[in-house]
């Protein structure tokens, strides 16, 4: 059974149809990439999955349960974690404090106006775990706003991981990054997928990253599904090649 299933969702903003009748099925442990030219509706599609806004029509299922009506904040509790195209972090807090907010939210402590030593220690342990997983231990006590772009992205992913997600949605994790930072973040995603077995859905511009990492790829153009398949199938697909006009590798 698929972990995430999107059944022909459509999103219209007035007369503009941003996403038109798109379906998607992601199996547990899969790494799925979503590609497509600018304005293809990729981020809108992500926003529908994570509940940023409701679809005009269609359904979204997590683990067979219809979550179309569930608010974004509650989808997090059901195991959906995301990052954003433009890194969304708490710039004036340290890396550790950024992750702490996520850990405490996940641990159900978010309404507690006090915290005892044992709980603090448990939270600290989990933070350290996330720091190690994202290789941020060295930067733990620096303000996130002062870090490099790649480290900021790693911190954002660490926060998402701290939520103990069943599915991780990453919106262009290497957007605006140089060569080295792209490698850093791609390496992190690969480790998470291969070693820890996270289910990941990823929007990505960098085709090297997509074709190296993804199990399956879906291609969106102008809000509709153009093609879907393994990296080899997608690379050989004439419609995809035409859409990219040779810009894809």
């Amino acid at each position: 059974m698929s972990l995430l299933e999107v059944r022909s969702v459509t999103k219209a903003f007035g007369s503009l149809v941003a996403v038109n009748d798109v379906s998607l099925s992601v199996a547990p442990g899969e790494l799925r990439a979503i590609i497509g030219p600018n304005g293809a509706g990729k981020t809108t599609f992500f926003n529908l999955i994570t509940g940023f806004f409701p679809p005009t029509s269609g359904h979204i299922l997590l683990d067979g349960k219809d979550i179309t009506e569930v608010a974004a904040v509650d989808r997090v509790g059901m195991g959906m974690a995301r990052t954003f195209q433009i890194t969304e972090i708490f710039p004036e807090l340290t890396v550790r404090e950024n992750i702490r907010v996520a850990v405490e939210s996940q641990a159900g402590l978010r309404l507690r106006p006090w915290i005892n030593r044992r709980q603090t220690a448990e939270v600290d342990d989990k933070i350290d775990e996330m720091l190690v997983a994202t290789r941020l231990t060295e930067q733990a006590d620096r303000l996130v706003g002062e870090l490099s772009h790649g480290d900021q992205r790693s911190a954002e992913i660490a926060m998402a991981l701290a939520l103990k997600p069943r599915i991780l949605l990453l919106d262009e994790p290497t957007a605006g990054m140089g060569e080295q930072e792209t490698f850093q973040v791609a390496g992190l995603i690969r480790r998470l997928h291969k070693h820890t077995g996270y289910t990941i859905v990823l929007i990505e511009h960098d085709m090297r990253v997509v074709f190296n990492l993804a199990d399956r790829i879906m291609v969106l153009t102008e809000g509709t599904l153009l093609a879907e398949g393994t990296p080899d199938e997608i690379a050989a697909n004439p419609a995809v090649q035409a859409a990219y006009l040779g810009t894809a590798e």
């Binding site: 509790g77 969304e88 807090l93 907010v101 978010r110 006090w114 915290i115």
Partner: peptide
């Protein structure tokens, strides 16, 4: 210094991020 207080600071820093950490 508590989780509740930290959630307030998180909201100040970035309400969108806070919401997507599961904090209403």
């Amino acid at each position: 210094r508590s989780p509740l207080g930290r959630s307030f600071i998180a909201i100040r820093e970035n309400p969108r991020r806070t919401r997507f950490l599961g904090i209403p």
